[in-house]
Amino acid sequence: MIHTPRPISEEWLVDYAAGAAPEPVAVLVDAHLSMCPESRALAARLDAVGGAMLERIEPAGLSAGALDRALAALDAPLPAAAPPAPAAAGRIPAALLPYTGTDFGALAWKPVVKGVEEVVLPTRGAPTHRMSLLRIVGGRAIPDHTHYGDELLLVLEGGFEDGRGHYARGDVCAADETVAHAPRADRGTDCICLAVTTGPIRLTGGWARLLNPLLRLRHR
């Protein structure tokens, strides 16, 4: 049976629809939208908020000849067709392909802790934001941690449980500085997530706390 994802929290869709989402957040929301009809419906409604605002905005003065310039441009030949947007490769959402390519196995996975590997996916701008793929071996967990900003985990394969709920393909687990959790992958299958953080995570459990200075370094 296909899992029907739960919709992402409204504030992220507002950021997205308003065009205010930083690149990593926009990519994650895009990928989630491709898997979640309910979020797609709400995102379309939030576009309409932008439309209503466009109707209310105080119109700006245009430069002299703006309409003539526009009319003259109508006859210009179409630019060479842009390369077609990449189609989704199997189960990888199209929004991720420019960052990950079609084969997750070919990426340079780096171990984080036992049973958890990560690939950082560079994005433009937003130096405070970080996007990566995480692979958690079935039954293993990301050590107990909290966050200095927001953390979004979009499940791409498998599933995990973090004490607050279970997350499967298409679901987004959102956590901020008020949340401490230790996502544990379901037994039997590896869990792959797209992770976006807006600040370093802070490990809270025992010996793992010693890794914190290291994580802050890795963040930048």
Binding site: I2, T4, S34, M35, P37, A41, A88, P93, A94
Partner: peptide, 16 residues
């Protein structure tokens, strides 16, 4: 650089 999701994406779930 960013590819926006498109309605033809085969990974899309059917519409509710």
């Amino acid at each position: 650089r960013r590819a926006r999701f498109d309605a033809e994406d085969p990974s899309l779930l059917p519409e509710a």
